[in-house]
Design a protein around this nucleic acid. Structure first.
Length: 428
RNA sequence: GGUGAGGUGGCUGAGUGGUCGAAAGCGGCGCUUUGCUAAAGCGCUGAGGGCGAAAGCUCUCCGGAGGUUCGAAUCCUCUCCUCACCGCCA
């Protein structure tokens, strides 16, 4: 959520910032609407408060007179009328306040000043490339063919029990998934200094508001209506919200958490849902990195977090590239984002396996997450997160990059101790 | 799910209708004393908002939402959470 004071004091700056996302007219209209609501709200609040001060004064007076045994019925009746007036105005003020909050919750974050200009994914600059595309002496197969041939994946039965865009992992295929989870968690905890967290997969509405999935993206969430609980679309939600409504001592920052969770996404309206394979699914596993930082350090923490996520691909020896999202392609909440894309030979394309973002104080304002500085003053934290990494697509890359002409898949050496073997081959 | 007891400031904990944003203690900060430390003494010490150039004035907040009242931390209703016991259960 944007700072209403910033909008009030520098409306042109905010409008310009929002405009970089693509729609200048919409940005202008949004800012004007918020400002109008803010003026109305403050006028009402000022009136309520003036009258409340008067009521407080009169009530005290009545108390004193009653103690002396005087008749207070006339004064009491007078204050009663004042009270009714306050209640009516207060109702309007609360409505304006709610309206303002809704407007602010629906307004995206300002892209960082350094964020590259552009309108779509084509404008995202590649900032790093690591490794090279592996060479094949044969036409590399898709993970679907590899997985079915080796008995690792069963999409038909997944459809039977849950519908399209779900997967069943079988035998060595299931073990490979589990090996990857353990490998990624160990890497981030033992080498990169993150604290592992195990968190609930069902979260409350407020948690989703805090990390910006609600109210705007309600149609993308799975919801358990009876309890008004939601299946977390990413560990970002439960993990970042761990400190919602807290004031952290500055010495505790930065907080660095890593968590494995399954992720649940309705993918309503998304292209490619309903096609087979692991690339876009309603449920997938992910190891997520979350940081809570001071404003001064958040950009440096983003670079470090992105490097931590990239490290996983480096250790696995997978070719990848890192791109930076341009203003027009940036998500609703982030002020700056790097995407990491791993090469999947069977797809002949790069797959996004990680999106590393700095949200500035955008999420922290929504969840009222603050820190206390050395002078004892409270400030909003900055929050960051990035996948470290998403599992299903990493799985795709490993199968497709490690495939051999004889149908076997050779696994990266770093996985051998986790998987318990160096390769997956056809049964004899 | 049932019954009972509770939810008050960073923490412990008083407060059952008026001058209570809230006693006291702990913790924290500052000052004095001190060779240093400790101890002691004194003072300060919640958050958010409105008006204002500022000084300052003022409003709201005692889990949450409603209600009663001139006036609510205090009374009433609902609700959430915590603890204990019972039931059920991986």
């Amino acid at each position: 959520m944007l700072d209403i004071r910033l909008i009030r004091e520098k409306p042109d700056f905010v409008t310009a910032g929002l405009s970089t996302r693509g729609d200048t007219g919409a940005a202008k209209a949004a800012v004007e609407q918020i400002l109008e609501c803010d003026r109305r709200r403050r006028a009402l609040e000022t009136e309520v408060q003036t009258l409340s001060a008067e009521r407080n004064r009169l009530s005290k007076e009545i108390g004193g007179r009653k103690a002396k045994g005087e008749d207070i019925s006339e004064a009491a009746a007078e204050v009663r009328i004042l009270g009714d007036k306050i209640a009516a105005l207060n109702h309007d003020a609360a409505k304006a306040d709610e309206e303002q909050r809704e407007l602010l919750l629906a307004t995206p974050n300002l892209p960082h000043a350094d964020c590259p200009r552009g309108t779509s994914a084509e404008d995202n600059p590649v900032v790093r490339v690591w490794g090279e595309k592996p060479a094949f002496t044969f036409e590399p197969h898709s993970h679907i063919a590899i997985g079915e041939r080796l008995g690792l994946l069963d999409f038909e039965r997944a459809v039977k029990i849950s519908g399209s865009a779900f997967a069943v992992y079988r035998g060595a295929g299931a073990r490979l998934e589990r090996a990857l989870i353990n490998f990624l968690l160990d890497l981030q905890t033992q080498e990169n200094g993150y604290t592992e967290m195990g968190v609930p997969y069902l979260v409350k509405r407020e948690a989703l508001i805090g990390t910006t999935q609600l109210p705007k993206f309600a149609d993308q969430q799975y919801r358990c209506a009876d309890d008004d609980l939601f299946l977390a679309p990413t560990a970002e939600v439960p993990v970042t919200n761990l400190h919602r409504e807290e004031i952290l001592p500055i010495a505790q920052l930065p907080v660095r958490y890593v968590a494995y969770t399954p992720c649940f996404r309705r993918e309503a309206g998304a292209a490619g849902v309903g096609t087979r394979g692991l690339i876009r699914m309603h449920q997938f596993d992910k190891v997520e990195l979350v940081k809570i930082s001071t404003p001064e350090n958040s950009m440096a923490e983003l670079e470090a977090l992105t490097a931590d996520a990239e490290k996983a691909l480096q250790v696995l020896g997978l070719h990848y590239r890192t791109i930076e999202l341009c203003c027009g392609d940036l998500g609703f909440g982030p002020t700056k984002t790097y995407d990491i894309e791993v090469w999947a030979p069977g797809q002949n394309s790069y797959l996004e396996v990680s999106s590393c973002s700095n949200f500035g104080d955008f999420q922290a304002r929504r969840m009222n997450l603050r820190f206390k500085d050395a002078e004892g003053k409270n400030h909003f934290c900055h929050t960051l997160n990035g996948s470290g990494t998403a599992l299903a697509r990493l799985y795709v890359a490993i199968l497709e990059a490690g495939q051999r002409e004889d149908g076997s898949v050779h696994l990266p050496p770093a996985l051998h101790p986790y998987f318990g073997a160096s390769q997956i081959r056809l049964p004899d």
